[in-house]
C-alpha cells in the first residue's frame, strides 16, 4: 500500500539529511512543521521552502537535553498540522570516541542526544498515532548500531539502543496500523561526515529519496544506499573471537 505524505513533522530539521527530506516533501506540496535546536537556521530554511515551493511551514526551537518539554512540542506540531502523516526524527551527533573514553560527560551526551531525546519524542508521538490509528514514524539510526566497533562505540551503542527500541515499537504499533521505519544510512555527505573521504559517500538528496520511497511503501528497515545491507551482513557474521582483533 502506498501513502502520500501531506503533513509532516521533522525533528532535527537542520540536519543535512533532514534538509533534503524537507526539500523533497515541500516539492511535492507537503505542509511541514520543523523542529531543531537553532531557531535562526530553522527560519532560513522555512523562508526558502515557502518561497520555492509555496507550501506552509512552521518552526519550533527545541532543547534536546530537556525531555520535559518534548511532549508540549509534539502537541503543538500535532495541533498545527492537524494530525500528521509522518514524523521524521533526524538529529544526531557523532562525538569523537577518544573524547568519550576520557570524559564520561561526553559519552553521556552521545546517549542523551542520539538515544534518550529520540525516545522521549517517540513516546508521545507513538501514543498519538496509535490513537489515531495511522501515521509513520521514520527514525534515523545508523549502520554503526549494527555492531560495536572500537572507533565509535559510544555513538554505535546509542544507535544500537535506538534500533532495538524501534524494533519493539514497531512490534507494538503494528496492530494499530502505525508504521515504524528504521533508517540506517552509510556515509552521507553532510557536516557529520565531512571528515570522511570515501567513494561510498552519497548525497543527502539520494538518502532522502530512498527514505521517502521506503516510507511510502511502509517498509520496516532501510539501508541507504542499499549495499550497506550486504556490508553490514558481512560485518555481523565475523565471529567475535576474530572481530575483537580487528582494527575497525
Amino acid at each position: 500500500m502506498k501513502m502520500r505524505i501531506q503533513k509532516a513533522l521533522i525533528i532535527g530539521a537542520t540536519s543535512g539529511i533532514a534538509q533534503a527530506l524537507a526539500g523533497q516533501l515541500a516539492a511535492s506540496g507537503a505542509t511541514l512543521f520543523l523542529a531543531g535546536r537553532s531557531k535562526e537556521k530553522l527560519d532560513l530554511m522555512a523562508r526558502d521552502l515557502r518561497l520555492r515551493h509555496g507550501v506552509q511551514v512552521e518552526v519550533q526551537a527545541v532543547t534536546f537535553e530537556e525531555p520535559a518539554n518534548h511532549a508540549a512540542i509534539v502537541q503543538r506540531a500535532w495541533e498545527w498540522l492537524g494530525e500528521m502523516d509522518a514524523a521524521f526524527i533526524c538529529h544526531g551527533v557523532l562525538i569523537d570516541q577518544k573524547k568519550c573514553e576520557r570524559d564520561f560527560e561526553q559519552a553521556l551526551h552521545s546517549f542523551q542526544i542520539n538515544l534518550l531525546s529520540v525516545v522521549s519524542f517517540l513516546g508521545d508521538l507513538a501514543n498519538r498515532m496509535e490513537t489515531a490509528g495511522r501515521g509513520s514514524l521514520v527514525v534515523i539510526s545508523s549502520v554503526a548500531g549494527d555492531r560495536g566497533r572500537q572507533s565509535n562505540y559510544a555513538y554505535g551503542a546509542a544507535k544500537a539502543g535506538l534500533t532495538a527500541f524501534l524494533q519493539g515499537l514497531r512490534n507494538r504499533l503494528f496492530p494499530s496500523g502505525v508504521r515504524v521505519l528504521t533508517v540506517k544510512p552509510g556515509y552521507v555527505d553532510t557536516p557529520m561526515a565531512a571528515h570522511i573521504h570515501s567513494l561510498l559517500k552519497v548525497s543527502a538528496d539520494r538518502a532522502a529519496r530512498d527514505i521517502l520511497a521506503a516510507t511510502e511503501k511502509g517498509r520496516d528497515v532501510l539501508y541507504t544506499p542499499w549495499f550497506w545491507r550486504l556490508i553490514m551482513l558481512v560485518i555481523r557474521l565475523i565471529p567475535e573471537s576474530i572481530f575483537k582483533r580487528l582494527k575497525l
Binding site: 532560513l44 530554511m45 523562508r47 526558502d48 518561497l51 520555492r52
Partner: peptide, 16 residues
C-alpha cells in the same frame, strides 16, 4: 544556497 526573500512585484530577490 537558500532563497530568503522575493518580491514578485518589484523583482527584488535576496538569496544566500
Amino acid at each position: 544556497n537558500r532563497v530568503l526573500n522575493f518580491d514578485e512585484e518589484s523583482g527584488i530577490i535576496r538569496c544566500e
